[in-house]
């Protein structure tokens, strides 16, 4: 399968290791991975701030960069959701509609298209899984925790030695929310601390998620507190990174 890798801007800049892991993982599972040159951002930050007009150039650039790709895969539920729901900002053309349908969050792509029996990795740790809200949303009609909505637990279940810790609130938002993290600082920080406490109370050694933005927020809080917990993107765990 030919896959175009979409690396969200903040991953490109701050977490290249996550993009590397995503690429290696897809290749190990039999994909031919290409990183279309010149990609930047999907436009979500401006659009979510209420400025779709300002997001339009980024959306157009995204549509041009990824035009004609069979599949676009990104290690982010949030950016993928934006592409799927709002890339019509680049014009409601057949090409854009094709692109919106063919853009996948990594775990959903793995679950839907790839032979997961080839996934032969171990990760002997207690892992807290943060279910990122945006990764859960596409195509869902009802309860976010309904069976089949979240494929990530199933993927992590294939990792030898990995123990998923039970959380008190398995679906609560971490409070990142893009600009919300700054404009609603108090609520954002409180939400993040509450999530962190839940994971720590249940003995998570590592916290993982489909979205590095949630983890950036949680890790920022954890490091400031000196909490003994590491943060890894799901791609890193599935790729066998330690």
């Amino acid at each position: 399968m030919n896959v175009a890798l979409f690396v969200p801007c903040y991953i490109d800049q701050f977490y290249p290791r996550v993009a590397v892991a995503t690429m290696r993982l897809l290749e190990r599972l039999g994909c031919t991975v290409r990183f279309p040159k010149g990609q930047t951002c999907c436009g979500q930050p401006m659009a979510n701030a209420g400025f779709e007009d300002a997001a339009r150039p980024a959306a157009r650039h995204f549509a041009e960069t990824f035009a004609g790709c069979d599949y676009v895969v990104a290690p982010s539920g949030s950016c993928v959701l934006h592409v799927r729901e709002h890339l019509d900002l680049a014009g409601d053309t057949a090409a854009v509609r094709h692109l919106r349908e063919r853009t996948f969050e990594l775990c959903r792509f793995l679950d839907r298209f790839l032979d997961l029996d080839r996934l032969d990795v171990s990760f002997p740790h207690r892992v807290g899984y943060h279910a990122a809200c945006h990764g859960l949303r596409p195509g869902r009609a009802g309860e976010r925790m309904a069976p089949g909505v979240d494929v990530v637990r199933g993927l992590l279940g294939r990792v030898a030695g990995l123990t998923l810790v039970a959380l008190d609130r398995a679906e609560e938002c971490c409070g990142f929310g893009g600009a919300f993290a700054v404009t609603e600082e108090a609520v954002s920080v409180r939400m993040g601390r509450d999530r962190l406490r839940d994971h720590l109370a249940h003995g998570a050694e590592v916290i993982t998620s489909t979205d590095m933005s949630c983890l950036m927020h949680l890790e920022g809080l954890a490091r400031r507190q000196g909490a003994p917990v590491r943060f890894l993107h799901v791609a890193e765990i599935l790729n066998g990174n330690r």
């Binding site: 991953i11 490109d12 977490y15 290249p16 590397v20 600082e185 920080v189 927020h217 809080l221 490091r223």
Partner: peptide, 16 residues
């Protein structure tokens, strides 16, 4: 209340 991420030496695009 939050640490910033440690900036890597190069971005993914450069590495790629």
């Amino acid at each position: 209340h939050r640490e910033w991420p440690d900036p890597p030496a190069e971005r993914f695009g450069t590495w790629y």
